[in-house]
């Protein structure tokens, strides 16, 4: 099995679903190991690679190194760990990675974020784009929703996770309470899909339809279904959901509310 040298210690590279070594997410300088990743960019690249390689230990140790060097913690997350998660998302979309790999990449990212989080300087909470996310009532299948959440989080969106089996009214109430203007709803079953329509109907009934963007996704859901229920958007997978959220937040920003598109 290939060995990757990072910061003078070695981490085993896992084998990809295709049986080959995982593709190099972000090429390190050929002499990065010998150099000890002296530059900031090299360190951030190694952090990204640790995430893509699903290597929690490396992610944490490299994050500790970023703290030791007094690099900006937010920048380390944004330019290091998040870049790795973006790459993992692309590999997922290209069917190089599957659900297990994506979950372990998220674990590796979390390991780094845990180290860096206490060192993040004050963040302008008002400037973050908030999204309310949940599985519609009657449905407890939440792995798709969880994948969307981790991809949105890693892209810098603030996700208010309502969990599974969520009543349509709750989506709207919680979005209003949190000041979130994007509502993302997941469903895996045709029996529960109609609950998504209820969210749209209740928004209309309350005179709030123009104030929120509603996006839908899940196994049986499609663009045609989204069109039928009057949702604003449909996402076929977790990685696409990030681009979708970015687009919707840009559209919201266009109406003068100043919403931001995560880190995208």
């Amino acid at each position: 099995m290939a060995k990757i040298e990072c910061l003078h210690y070695e981490a085993e590279a896992p084998v990809s679903p295709g049986g080959q070594d995982y593709p190099r997410a972000l090429d390190l300088p050929p002499d990065a190991g010998r150099m000890g990743l002296e530059g900031k960019e090299s360190l951030f690249q190694a952090m990204a690679k640790a995430v893509v390689d699903m290597d929690e230990d490396s992610s944490a140790r490299l994050s500790e190194e970023a703290v030791r060097r007094r690099y900006d913690a937010f920048e380390a997350i944004d330019q290091g760990l998040t870049k790795g998660m973006e790459q993992a998302g692309r590999l997922f979309e290209e069917e190089e990675y599957f659900v297990p790999e994506l979950l372990l990449c998220a674990d590796a990212m979390d390991a780094g974020v845990e180290v860096l989080k206490p060192h993040i300087k004050k963040v302008d909470e008002e400037a973050k784009c908030r999204i309310v996310l949940g599985v519609i009532s009657g449905d407890t299948h939440d792995i798709g929703k969880n994948l969307v959440k981790l991809m949105l989080n890693s892209a810098g969106f603030e996700v208010i996770d309502l969990g599974r089996d969520v009543d349509p009214e709750i989506f709207i109430d919680r979005a209003q309470e949190a000041g979130a203007r994007i509502i993302m709803i997941s469903s895996l079953m045709t029996t529960t899909m109609e609950g998504m329509l209820d969210v749209v109907k209740i928004l209309k009934k309350r005179g709030l339809r123009d104030q929120f963007k509603v996006a839908v996704g899940g196994g049986p859901v499609s663009q045609a279904f989204a069109d039928r229920i009057g949702a604003d958007a449909y996402s076929p997978n977790a990685n696409h959901a990030v681009r979708l959220a970015a687009r919707l937040s840009v559209e919201l920003a266009g109406d003068g509310t100043g919403e931001l598109a995560g880190n995208l």
Binding site: V15, S16, P17, G18, G19, F98, V99, P100, E101
Partner: peptide
């Protein structure tokens, strides 16, 4: 299925 795991797994 490949909706969840890789062909190798």
């Amino acid at each position: 299925s490949p909706a969840c795991i890789s062909p190798r797994v």
